[in-house]
Design a protein around this nucleic acid. Structure first.
Lengths: 341, 341
DNA sequence: TTTATTTACGGAAACGTTGCCGGACATTTT
DNA sequence: AAAATGTCCGGCAACGTTTCCGTAAATAAA
């Protein structure tokens, strides 16, 4: 670690520490000549203020935390990309915390963050999270929290989401229009608002077309991919198997592809597939996957923009800043009804 | 931010600040009864030590930085996943910095990190990085640096890489074995060691089979994806176009797929394709992509394990800890020679 | 000339934590 | 009984930065 500090600069220049400090912050109390000398030496020695001393003194960390279930995931890595961009513009640093969909880990991370390590938190809750008192505790400690994508609806703070209900409706409607009559829904969690809202959209789209909603077509998937594969497999092997699948997250869309390969079911002839996805290669899959595309990068940008407003403005009301972004249905081969194959 | 600090605990209990501090660190100088009282109150008030005060006092940040070109990238997000896992085990926090392949950004980030914000740095250099004095400066400031994947070969520190030369050789050999005679190489940067090593493997594999190495088959791609698309397109439209493509990074393999779609070139009949990739969905592409699969997660884990050894052991020689991991060729439809289609 | 005002800087306290030093009291050793 | 040792705790300085306060010298106003 560099040992160039204010004291060293001060000694070298024969002035006091406070003069150096003020010169570097361009205070009006310091003469232009002195400022210039200080700046020159600081530049020469690559003086970098000790962030921990500054943070301690200013009670500001210039750091935010991003708490997400996983990072090896297109949606979250794109969102983090957007977050980092805005954070960098604001001169902030970004700490990453992964919950691995583990509720206890999430609690322990948030508990820890009450210590002032960060000035604010951006988070997407774990699929296991039901009790949300840990989030409330953090907010009670005056750390602003902005949710993105996976939000806690009952907590009064800013939330940046997609129109999950609408997306679920549109995706289901699309499958119906393409001729599906038995549509399976692959849910990712019983607790998550995204999963519930997307499912509500799915159910309402079925009702709107007077298609009965068969509970056996709703599969609640979990964290374990192997288990999920078995669940999807058993759905597609069932006597009265679905002719369409709506995967509420990318991973489950891929799982569906693998299972269909395995069972020699042809997409879209035997089963049509729609999935939420941000996969760049969705168009290159066999067949190209019809997706609900969320603008993950934009979600990250918007969420962090809101957080920085809260950090920079007094009396900023986080809850009022919530945003719902549009997701987009991109039709491709996995739901094509008149095959030219 | 929480206002529960040592002073508050001390006042509440009627003891001194130093007693509380020592009780919390389980010092032998404190009686069991006092310890218990302190611990109980700390628990009750969710006392979390101020990290900035601790860091300032201890001259240790318990934080590492990960500096990567981008995060919306399978390789890097998987590597970060591995890094976070090990960091968490060691009680460390992880700061993320993105260079966006921009040399100046990389310099400015590393300059900044000399201030002690982090105890160590894990990095993968930008494709534009040629001059490496900024890395040397950081190391001169006694911040240990461990490179992963994209290393600076001339800097004496730990490096965790794949056997890039070997991988390039094997991939090319595979294409030759499958019947290719004109193999294009899509390079990602003129400076990067991975690109150079993979290319050397490619060239040596050609030589080993007495296949002439045609310079016009080597395409140096850049950061701009549209430009890259045009470059690949012009390669595949050239009079004597290649019958095989070796993409040195995932993105360029996907570009090749898009261009082939566009030009109505069939893979593998017209052009075979091999690419470095960690794509989970590579097997679902049309056709399934033959890949050189790097274990990105493992690379991240190994690199951070080495960094923590350096942080925990005195006189640890970073350079001696370098590791070269094996990458694996996974043969799939994009290089299948006897078509059953 | 005396009294304000301005300019330019130094001193010192504070942020919260840690660890050295020292001391009061009790217990053990000579 | 005196000395040595042990137990348990408080005081204080230090980490590097920022800012409030004070002040000497220079200038302006009376």
């Amino acid at each position: 670690m560099s040992s160039v500090n204010l004291k060293k600069l001060a000694e070298e220049l024969g002035v006091s520490v406070s003069t150096v400090s003020r010169a570097l912050r361009d205070s009006y109390e310091i003469s232009p000549e002195t400022k210039q000398k200080v700046l020159a030496l600081a530049e020469k020695l690559n003086y970098q203020p000790n962030p921990y001393a500054s943070s301690l003194r200013n009670q500001k960390s210039l750091t935010i935390a991003v708490v997400v279930p996983e990072i090896a995931n297109n949606f979250f890595s794109l969102a983090i990309n957007g977050i980092e961009e805005i954070a960098h513009l604001n001169g902030y640093h970004v700490l990453i915390y992964l919950t691995h969909e583990d509720y206890n880990k999430e609690v322990s991370i948030l508990r820890h963050l009450a210590n002032g390590r960060v000035d604010g938190v951006l988070m997407s809750v774990s699929s296991e999270t039901n009790d949300i008192s840990h989030v409330k505790e953090l907010i009670a400690n005056e750390i602003p929290v902005v949710f993105f994508d996976r939000v806690c609806e009952s907590i009064s703070t800013a939330k940046v989401t997609n129109d999950d209900y609408e997306s679920g409706f549109i995706a289901t409607e699309h499958l119906l229009k393409q001729g599906c009559s038995r549509i399976g829904y692959l849910a990712v969690s019983r607790h998550l608002s995204i999963s519930k809202n997307r499912m509500q959209g799915y159910q309402d789209a079925l009702s709107a077309s007077s298609v009965p909603c068969d509970a056996s077509l709703i599969v609640h998937c979990g964290i374990d991919q192997e288990e999920n594969t078995l669940l999807v497999k058993s759905l597609l092997q069932s006597e009265n198997r679905p002719d369409g699948i709506f995967a509420s997250v990318e991973k489950l869309a891929l799982t569906t592809y693998y299972v269909c390969n395995d069972l020699a079911l042809k997409i879209p002839e035997d089963v049509m597939v729609v999935g939420f996805s941000n996969l760049e290669s969705a168009n290159l899959l066999n067949p190209p996957l019809t997706v609900i595309r969320q603008n993950a990068f934009e979600i990250g940008k918007q969420a962090s923009t809101i957080l920085f407003k809260a950090l920079n403005q007094v009396n900023f009301v986080l809850e009022d800043a919530s945003i719902v972004l549009k997701a987009e249905l991109v039709e491709r081969g996995s739901t094509a009804s008149n095959q030219s194959y």
